[in-house]
Nucleic acid binder design. Structure first.
Lengths: 414, 414
DNA sequence: CTCTATTTTTTCGAGCCTCAAAAAAAATAC
DNA sequence: GTATTTTTTTTGAGGCTCGAAAAAATAGAG
C-alpha cells in the first residue's frame, strides 16, 4: 500500500540523492551536484556540509589540475574511503572469491580459493564461505567495525529478497540462506544476489552511456544466464531472481537440459550442449558436468577452421539464442545485448545463425539495429557489480537511513 | 536522471495520495485515510479541507447507516462526480465504443457503432473516431469544459508514451497518432492504450484481493494478447506497449501466423488457428480474417461432444499457451492468470494440455498451484480499465499537478 | 434531561526543510 | 592593487508535517 511522504523523509531522500550524485560523478563540485539533482545551492551546501561533518564525504585537493577558469575554483567532493567498507563474496563453479572494498570502491584486501563445489556437503560449502569471510575480517589491515555490508553472488536462482540461494548448478544443495547465515555469524547485513544481475549492475557502472535504461546481459557459460535492466531498474522475478532466459523453451520436447527438462535454450547453447553437439553425442545424452574454458576455445578454433559438427554446434547455439531473444524481445522490445563468458569469445560463430533466427521473430523486426557487445571474462564483472550493489546499499540505508531499499526487488541499479 | 525532491512536491504528492485513497476506498473517513496513508490526522485534515474547498471531494451524507458507535461519527469523503469527466474510446474489430464518465466513475453518456475497420481508409478511421467523440461532446447533458481527458484503447501495439497506435490487427493502417489527433482536435489531453493492458488495470480495480501485485491477463480472441502487472506496476515494453505474448515463438518455423511469421503462440491458439486446425486446413493456410463468436462456440461444443479435429485443435492451443506461459514464467515466475475473451469460455478444452505443457517447463515447477480464472467478455473490462486509467490521470495530473505521471510507462495501476 | 465517556476532526505552535537573495570567499584579469 | 567572475555560505521567509490540545458530535448512564 502506497504511503504518504513524511516530512523527515525529505532530508533523507535528498541526502541519498547527493551521495548518489557523488558516487556517479566521482569528484563533482557542489554546483554540479545542484545541477544534476535539481536542488538549490543552499540545500546542497547544507547537506554536503552535514555529510562532510559526518565523515562521509571529503573535500578534494584544491590542487586539481586545469582549473584555469576565472572566479572561485570549484572544490570537488569525493567519497571518504574510510567512511565504511564492504565485502564481496562470489561463489562460482569450483571457485570462491572474496574482496574487501573501501567506501570509495578500491579493493583493500582479497582472497581466492579453489573448491570442489559439485561434491561438497552443505555444511562444508557454508563453512568455507564463513571461514574465508572470517579470515578477511581478521586481516590486520581491515577495521572490522567499518565493514558495513556483505554482498554475495552465486550462479543460480536466488530469492527476490536477496536472502537465499534457491538453486544453483554449482552444487547439488538447495535453499541455503547465505545472507541469514552470514548475518548471524558476523552481525553484518548481507545479501545474496544472482551473478547475472550483478553483471548487469557492473555494466551499467562501467559504461552508463551504452548501458543506461534498457539492456540485457547474457552469460554464455556452462549454463545460460541473464541479467536484465528495464527502464533503469534491475528486473527480477516476482519470487526469485527470475530472468531464467536459459530455460525458456526453444523446442518443445527437444534436447535434454541440465535442469532435467527438454528443449530449453540452454540445452542448445550452454557449453555442455555445444560440446555434446560438437561430439555428435545426440540430444538425449546426459550433460557433462564441466567443460573447461580451454576445451571450449579449442572447439571454437576447430569450428573456425573447417565446416563440421563443431561449426554446426555453434550454429545451433546461435539459433536457440536467436529464437529465445526473439521471444524475449516480443515481450520487452529489443535492447542492446552484452554477451559475457567464454562462449562470448566465439560469438563470431554464433552471430550469423542468431541473427537469422531473430529475424524470424516478432521481436526481431529491426534485427539489424540490435547491437551485441562481447566480454569473455565474467568474474571481474560479477565482483564489480557486487561491490557497487553493496556500496549503494550503504549509501542508502546507512548514510541516508529511513529510505526504503530492502532486498533487490526492482530497486534502482544506480 | 533522478532528481531531488523539492519542497513543494511534498504537498502535491500527499494530495495525490489522499485522492487515490478516496478513489480506492469509496467513502473513507479522514481517520481511515490517515491510517492507510500513514500521514498524521492534522495533515489529512488540512489536505481534505483544501480538496473540499476546490470541489474535488465532497463530504458524504451523515445519514450513512450503521453508525451505531459511540463518539463523534466519521464523515465519509467521496469524489465529487462533477469535479471532472473523462471519455473512453474503445476501438476493436468492426466496432467503436465511446463513453463519458463522471469523476466518481459513473457512465453519463455513451454511444456504440459498427464499422468495417478492416477495409476502411486511414482518413475514414480517424474521421469516425473524431466524429463519435464530437457527438458525445455535443450531448446537452455534457459540460464540454469538464471533460479532462480521453483514454483510447485499441487491440494491437501502441507506443510506450501512449500516444500512437503502431500496428493493429483490426486495420491495415499503421502508426496513427490518435492521441495527438484528438488533442489537436478537441484540446483535451488524450492517451492511446493497449487493450490488454486496460484489461489488467480493470481486473486490479475489480478484484484487488486476487489481482494485486503480480498477475497476467491473457486475451484469447482472434489474436492472443497479454496485459501484465508485475510488482504492482503495469509492465510495458521499452518502446511499445510490449507484452506480445502471442508472438513468442512456440515452434521455430512452425504454423503460419497472422503476423506473417511462423511458429508464434498465436498461430496455434488464436481463434483463426483453432479454426484452421479444426477444419484440418494445414498450418500453411492463410489465416482467415474473422471467425465469429458463434462459430467459435459451435466449435467448442463439437469438441466437447466427441473426439476429433476440433478437440485436437483446442489441445494444440492449450499446448502452445502452456509452453508460452512456461517460458514467460521462466522469466517472471508464476503468477495468477486471467483468461479473457471468447475462447476463455472453452478453457475446459484448453486447460489439460496447457497444464501438461507448462509442467514440462522451468516456470511450471509448481504447475498445480498456478490458478486460472476465466472471463468470456473482454469489452466491458477494456472500457472499465480505460475509465480508471483516465480517472487516475486526472487525479494525479490535474488535481495534484507537478507529480510526474507521463504516458503509461511503468506507472502504477492504482 | 443532563452529564460523562468516547471518538472524530480541527486548531495551534514547534520544528524542519527548501528556496531565493544577499553576502562572503577565492581565484583570475587588467 | 583593484575589478571581475564564479563558487560557496549565510540569512530570512515561507511552507509543510507533526504532536498535543481543543473542539465537535454522538451514545450511554443516571
Amino acid at each position: 500500500m502506497s504511503v504518504g511522504i513524511r516530512h523527515d523523509d525529505l532530508r533523507r531522500r535528498n541526502r541519498a540523492m547527493v551521495i548518489a550524485a557523488v558516487r556517479r560523478a566521482g569528484q563533482p563540485s557542489r554546483t554540479e551536484i545542484a545541477a544534476t539533482t535539481g536542488l538549490s545551492h543552499s540545500t546542497i551546501s547544507a547537506i554536503s556540509s552535514d555529510l562532510i561533518g559526518e565523515g562521509i564525504l571529503v573535500e578534494g585537493k584544491p590542487s586539481e589540475a586545469g582549473a584555469l577558469k576565472r572566479g572561485r575554483p570549484q572544490v570537488g567532493l569525493g567519497l571518504n574511503p574510510e567512511a565504511a567498507a564492504i565485502m564481496t563474496v562470489v561463489l562460482s563453479l569450483n571457485f570462491l572469491s572474496v574482496a574487501v572494498i573501501d567506501y570509495a570502491g578500491q579493493v583493500i584486501s582479497e582472497e581466492q580459493r579453489r573448491l570442489d563445489t559439485l561434491t561438497m556437503s552443505r555444511e562444508a560449502l557454508i563453512g568455507e564461505c564463513v571461514a574465508i569471510v572470517r579470515r578477511r575480517l581478521e586481516d590486520p589491515d581491515i577495521d572490522v567495525r567499518s565493514v558495513a555490508r556483505i554482498a554475495l553472488a552465486i550462479q543460480g536462482i536466488t530469492d527476490t529478497e536477496a536472502r537465499a540461494m534457491l538453486w544453483s548448478p554449482i552444487t547439488p544443495q538447495t535453499d541455503i540462506a547465505f545472507a541469514d547465515i552470514l548475518e548471524a555469524e558476523f552481525g553484518i547485513p548481507a545479501t545474496m544476489e544472482n551473478d547475472c544481475n550483478m553483471m548487469a549492475v557492473a555494466l551499467r557502472w562501467r559504461d552508463p552511456e551504452r548501458y543506461r535504461d534498457d539492456f540485457i546481459a547474457i552469460l554464455l557459460s556452462h549454463g545460460i544466464g541473464m541479467g536484465l535492466v528495464l527502464k533503469g531498474e534491475l528486473f527480477t522475478g516476482t519470487h526469485s531472481s527470475g530472468g531464467e532466459f536459459g530455460h525458456m523453451i526453444h523446442r518443445p520436447g527437444g534436447a535434454l537440459c541440465r535442469c532435467g527438462r527438454r528443449g530449453c535454450v540452454e540445452a542448445y547453447a550452454g557449453n555442455y550442449a555445444i560440446w555434446r553437439n560438437a561430439r555428435q553425442l545426440g540430444e538425449d545424452t546426459e550433460p557433462v558436468a564441466d567443460v573447461s574454458d580451454a576445451q571450449m576455445r579449442a572447439l571454437a578454433t576447430t569450428a573456425r577452421e573447417r565446416a563440421g559438427p563443431e561449426r554446426e554446434a555453434y550454429r545451433k547455439a546461435g539459433e536457440a539464442l536467436g529464437y529465445g531473444l526473439g521471444s524475449l524481445f516480443a515481450l520487452i522490445d529489443p535492447a542492446p545485448v552484452a554477451m559475457v563468458g567464454v562462449s562470448a569469445a566465439a560469438f563470431d560463430l554464433i552471430e550469423p545463425a542468431l541473427r537469422e533466427a531473430i529475424a524470424q521473430t516478432a521481436g526481431g523486426q529491426h534485427s539489424k539495429s540490435i547491437s551485441f557487445d562481447t566480454e569473455p571474462n565474467e568474474l571481474p564483472l560479477i565482483r564489480e557489480g557486487c561491490a557497487m550493489r553493496a556500496l549503494t546499499f550503504v549509501d542508502q540505508e546507512i548514510f541516508a537511513p529511513g529510505v526504503q531499499a530492502r532486498g533487490s526487488a526492482g530497486k534502482s541499479v544506480a
